[in-house]
Design a protein around this nucleic acid. Structure first.
Length: 123
DNA sequence: CTAGTGACTGTTT
DNA sequence: AAAACAGCCACTA
């Protein structure tokens, strides 16, 4: 039933959400991106958390490839919130050819999108 | 208007 | 390398 609860955003009424969803929709199959990168591409710099909000607000049957959005270090952001959801996400990504290392992390310099943002560079 | 919160991120322990 | 801390800003009450 309606699991949209007391704290999460109930609906993408805001244009920011729309912009975020638009960018998420553009992430190519077999690639992944991060909350921060999506925020920036959506013209919302430093709004990574808002991207998280938007993802959380997505309905279950959403056509959006939400599973392609990871944390900045290549881990699944959802893990903290829903371990089972994280499993689903990982399964979906692996099916697209996205590889995980033994630690459960994705190599962003290889699968990250857009490429330029995740090109191997000294930190 | 203020206060609390968070699918985040970068820095420091 | 993992955990703790602090900064960040839109959204809700």
């Amino acid at each position: 039933m309606a699991a949209r609860a007391r704290n999460a955003s109930p609906a993408p009424r805001s244009s920011a959400y729309t912009a975020i969803y638009a960018v998420v929709r553009r992430v190519p199959r077999g690639r992944v991106s991060t909350y921060g990168a999506i925020a920036e591409l959506a013209k919302l710099p430093r709004q990574a958390r808002l991207v998280g909000y938007a993802m959380h607000a997505l309905p279950d049957g959403s056509p959006l490839p939400w599973h392609r959005i990871l944390s900045a270090d290549g881990r699944l952001g959802i893990a903290r919130l829903s371990p089972s959801g994280a499993l689903t996400q990982r399964m979906r990504l692996e099916r697209e050819g996205v590889g995980f290392d033994a630690r459960g992390r994705v190599k962003l310099e290889r699968f990250g999108w857009p490429r330029a943002r995740f090109a191997a560079r000294p930190r």
